[in-house]
Write a protein that binds this DNA or RNA. Sequence first.
DNA 1: TTGAAATAGCACTAAATTGGTGCGAAATAC
DNA 2: GTATTTCGCACCAATTTAGTGCTATTTCAA
Lengths: 154, 154
Amino acid sequence: MLQLTKRTEYGLIALVHMVDQGGEYTSAREIAESYPIPKRLLAEVLKDLARSGLVNSLRGSTGGYALARPPEQITVGDIVSALEGAPTLASCDTADGNASDCEVEPVCPIRSPLQRIRKGIWLQMQRTSLRALVTPSPQAADLPLTARNGPAAS
Amino acid sequence: MLQLTKRTEYGLIALVHMVDQGGEYTSAREIAESYPIPKRLLAEVLKDLARSGLVNSLRGSTGGYALARPPEQITVGDIVSALEGAPTLASCDTADGNASDCEVEPVCPIRSPLQRIRKGIWLQMQRTSLRALVTPSPQAADLPLTARNGPAAS
DNA sequence: TTGAAATAGCACTAAATTGGTGCGAAATAC
DNA sequence: GTATTTCGCACCAATTTAGTGCTATTTCAA
């Protein structure tokens, strides 16, 4: 239903939390205790983030995770891509432009416009940095087409 | 994984097909035979489209479906909304701005930026008309933020 | 040296969503 | 009347996702 997975959601929350911790290494337990997130599952997500190089990890009793790059250089696109793969709107619409396993392909009339939409979504995710997530200032979001209905910065 | 459902995909194909048929009523069978789509499932999708008022239906042996409005006035957003609901990126991010059943809510740090992204996606779908789907001309797509990597219109 | 606390890896179960089907009823043209 | 269509609802099957179990390995610190 065109929704991010819980894994991605948890990953985003964890990364935002890490931003707040500065460069300090933060354990999965600590993050999981700050939000109603199953610790075990969050651990799994963090492992994936480490595998894809978005965070560094340290083992041992004082170990944990920390951002591998400054939050300005990590995008929502990076995170989504690491945790659930790049978005593909239709089965005949892959990120690399191939229509590999699409049976409709030879007669499919909706490919190129859907690709355009997907690219737009993707662009938006790549344009939104982790920094923008943590700083909800209207400026920092770098999304010119924002429809602002009334956050009322309190 | 941030992907449209098959139902939506089939719906899009069917609607594009209807555009080609002009104002003529087209049966589910005819459409299903033009593409490798299970007839039975397509029928279900068309019923939904009819229920939501995007297409008109006629029963009887010469019946079928036809667009209820000109394709310029039907958007991808309308179609997606009819077949799988409006996109919601995270569980704390509903279309109406409420965070109804979100347990993370009081401490959730990612709400407003995700809402912005979702709104951008939504806007893009609302901006893309069925006409644009059927006419893959770069002009007709009305997507100002298109990542134009090949067409090179300028 | 020992133990606690942390990540790493892998497999597994359970729940939810989605894809697809069955079947009968009501309408309509011939 | 019959063939062909949409309509409505329920149902099963396949896939995806959420979440857990368990063990090994690393590291700090007492």
